[in-house]
Simulated assay, not measured.
Amino acid sequence: MSAPAHDDTVHHDPVEDITKHIPVVIPLAGAIMIFLLAFIAVKMA
């Protein structure tokens, strides 16, 4: 009986790729949302 083989390769975590962009994406999404809401308010006034 042989010992189980261990896979020592580094696993790629897609969540870490996303979380390092959060400080840029959230303010950008907020700015777009503010401009869209302002455009709708001006259009309806």
Score class of each variant (00 low, 15 high):
1 M>Q: 08
1 M>S: 10
2 S>Q: 10
2 S>T: 10
2 S>N: 12
2 S>L: 13
2 S>H: 08
2 S>E: 13
3 A>V: 12
3 A>N: 11
3 A>L: 14
4 P>S: 11
4 P>M: 10
4 P>Y: 07
4 P>G: 06
4 P>C: 08
5 A>W: 02
6 H>G: 07
6 H>S: 09
6 H>K: 12
7 D>I: 01
7 D>W: 01
7 D>R: 02
7 D>L: 00
7 D>Y: 00
9 T>I: 05
9 T>W: 04
9 T>D: 11
9 T>A: 11
9 T>E: 09
10 V>N: 07
11 H>T: 09
11 H>A: 10
11 H>C: 06
11 H>G: 04
11 H>M: 11
11 H>Y: 08
12 H>F: 14
12 H>G: 03
12 H>D: 13
12 H>E: 10
13 D>K: 00
13 D>M: 03
13 D>Y: 01
13 D>P: 00
14 P>Q: 04
14 P>V: 04
14 P>K: 04
14 P>L: 05
15 V>Y: 02
15 V>W: 03
15 V>S: 09
15 V>I: 15
16 E>G: 12
16 E>N: 13
16 E>I: 06
17 D>G: 07
17 D>C: 08
17 D>S: 14
18 I>H: 03
18 I>G: 03
18 I>M: 12
18 I>V: 12
19 T>I: 03
19 T>A: 01
20 K>A: 06
20 K>V: 04
20 K>S: 12
21 H>M: 10
21 H>P: 01
21 H>A: 11
21 H>C: 09
21 H>K: 13
22 I>D: 03
22 I>V: 11
23 P>F: 02
23 P>R: 01
23 P>E: 02
24 V>E: 13
24 V>K: 12
24 V>A: 15
25 V>F: 09
27 P>W: 00
27 P>K: 01
27 P>S: 02
28 L>D: 05
28 L>H: 05
28 L>Q: 07
28 L>W: 05
29 A>N: 09
29 A>Q: 08
29 A>G: 14
29 A>L: 15
29 A>H: 05
30 G>Q: 03
31 A>W: 02
32 I>N: 05
32 I>T: 06
32 I>G: 11
33 M>I: 13
33 M>K: 07
34 I>Q: 05
34 I>G: 06
34 I>T: 07
34 I>A: 15
34 I>V: 15
34 I>W: 05
35 F>Q: 08
35 F>V: 14
36 L>E: 10
36 L>Y: 12
36 L>G: 15
37 L>V: 14
37 L>T: 10
37 L>A: 15
37 L>D: 06
37 L>P: 01
38 A>F: 03
38 A>T: 04
39 F>N: 11
39 F>V: 08
40 I>L: 15
40 I>Y: 09
41 A>W: 11
41 A>V: 13
41 A>S: 06
42 V>I: 15
43 K>S: 14
43 K>A: 14
43 K>R: 15
43 K>F: 11
44 M>S: 13
44 M>Q: 14
44 M>F: 09
44 M>R: 15
45 A>M: 12
45 A>P: 04
45 A>C: 08
45 A>V: 10
